[in-house]
Every structure is written in C-alpha cells, then in structure tokens.
Nucleic acid binder design. Structure first.
Lengths: 144, 144
DNA sequence: TTTACTGCAAACGGTTTGCAAAAGG
DNA sequence: CCTTTTGCAAACCGTTTGCAGTAAA
C-alpha cells in the first residue's frame, strides 16, 4: 500500500509519521502540477484531515529540507509552490494565460554550465529554467 | 546630457517627467546589478531626493510596464528586483553565498524553444534562466 | 518519557491601495 | 486647467513565529 511507502520515506528522513504529513506527501505525489500551501490546505480539508495552515507551511518546508519535496518560485506569482521530489531534473513550461504548469524533462543546459564555470570561475551548483508561453487551449481562446 | 535622455524616454512612454522618476531611471541605468525597491529608496535618499517608498514601488512598476525597466524574481529572495532594460536578452549567475548577481549575455536555449514548441504545441513567449553557484571570492572563504 | 509535532493567535516583511494634496504639461 | 503623480497611513497577503498543549516513538 502507498501509505507504507510514505511512512518509510518519513522514517528514513528522521521525521515522525503523522496523519497530516503522510497525507501531504500523498497529495504532492498524486498532483501532476506543483501546488501552493493553500491548495494543499484545501485538499486536506476535502479529505477530512483538517490541519492548520501554519502546520501545512511547516510541513512543506520540512519536506523540502529533507528533499522529499521541491520548493519552486514560479515567476509572476508571489506564492511558493511545492511538488513531490521525483528526483529527476526538471524544468517547467508555464501558460501565461491559464497559469497551467507543465513539467518538462529534457534539460538543454548541462554543457552550458561547464562553459560558464570556465568563463566566470564560479563553482556552479544548479540552475533554474522556466519557459513561458500560451498553451494550445489558450491560443484558441485568444483568437476568438 | 544624460538627464535629457531620461526625459525623452519618459515622454515617449507617455509618462510625466518628475524629479523622482528620472532619478530612479538614472539609478537603474547606473547600477550594474539588479536592485530592490528599498535599495532604490535609499539611493534616492543619498542623493537628497527623498521620495516615499510607495512612490518608489509605483514608479518601478510603471517603468516595468512601459518596458523601461525589467522586474526580476531571483529564487530564494522574496523581494522583487529591478534593472534598467538594456534590451539585451540576459541571464543571471547568482552567488549562493554573497548573493552577488552577475549578468550573462549568452543564451543557450534559443533552439530549445523551437523544439519545445513542436513537442508541446505551446506558443513560446519567453523564458527565464538563472544559474546558481559560488563566486571565486566565496569559494576561498568557504575553504578556510 | 522524551522529543517531535501541532494549533492558535499574533507578528512579520514586502507590497499595494484609497484618498486628498501637489505638480506636470 | 485637467490629468498624473505623490505622500501618507492603513490594508494587504503570503509566510513565519512563540508558546503551550498533544501525539509519536
């Protein structure tokens, strides 16, 4: 059962397995798109597992620290977003109209980092690439 | 004289030329790094042109709307940053230790956008790439 | 039984707003 | 003049915090 997976994940990270935590992990895992703290909060309510909003924030922060989740800052939205850490290096394609976020798996800039290290003498630790545009649905809506 | 340039820029954008506005434009133009609203506010004070912080926010927002400035969201900092719009497509190399921001001019993902358009049927409008790492100075400090 | 976790309410920091006064063209 | 722009103070919104109580190991 899935539940046990989360239990083990939490355990391994030295975290106690509470109902709220495993529920949040499950919400993240099942969501195809990154979510905000408030979305998680509402989703918990739907599942009759009401938790305090500040607990949700604390939990998401903890999960991100332990690398069980990733915290994202999508440009143009002041809210933090969180997603299950699937351990794949990913980028995002964001629709400027409907705000849909599509994860994309191919990363075009591995080599670029090497070049950049040589040029700048920086020790590169990572990067953040988001692409913006209009999704097929919204392109149609706009034309009408 | 520079002053006149800003006057003309503002005029062309349909904005009135106030002391505060041209001073802010000049601050942006002279700054090698993106700055926060508060930094602009303090810089104005230095120049004996005290303006209200909310005016600074409003001005920066307006300048960004009119494309005279660019508004950036650097990951890991909740504050917005602004820079003079030099009309070159740029990325940023951010030092995770001292927070220094180095603009970099080469863009490695033009082709990638085309591939992505074909694959996803999105109409790509732009992208945002920031690279993170440790600058030469901070690498030394950390080793000690 | 010890430590980690939670709820609550209050504070926070960056940003935005309504309104009346001031200044630009 | 008429329209923008400004200062001020208050509100805003997402997020964080201190603390006392609760639950997990």
């Amino acid at each position: 059962m899935k539940q046990d997976n989360f239990d083990e994940l939490l355990r391994r990270s030295g975290l106690k397995n509470t109902k709220t935590r495993s529920a949040i992990l499950e919400i993240l895992e099942k969501s195809e798109q990154p979510v905000t703290a408030e979305q998680v909060f509402l989703e918990l309510k739907n599942k009759q597992i009401s938790a305090n909003l500040s607990t949700v924030y604390r939990t998401l922060e903890t999960l991100a620290e332990k690398m069980l989740a990733k915290k994202l800052n999508i440009s143009g939205d002041s809210r933090a977003m969180f997603e299950y850490n699937r351990l794949v290096h990913r980028h995002y394609l964001v629709c400027l109209e409907c705000k849909k976020i599509i994860p994309i798996d191919f990363c075009p800039i591995k080599n670029y980092e090497k070049t950049l290290e040589e040029k700048t003498k920086f020790k590169i630790a990572g990067h953040k690439l988001d692409v913006y545009g209009y999704c097929p649905d919204c392109q149609n809506k706009i034309q009408e």
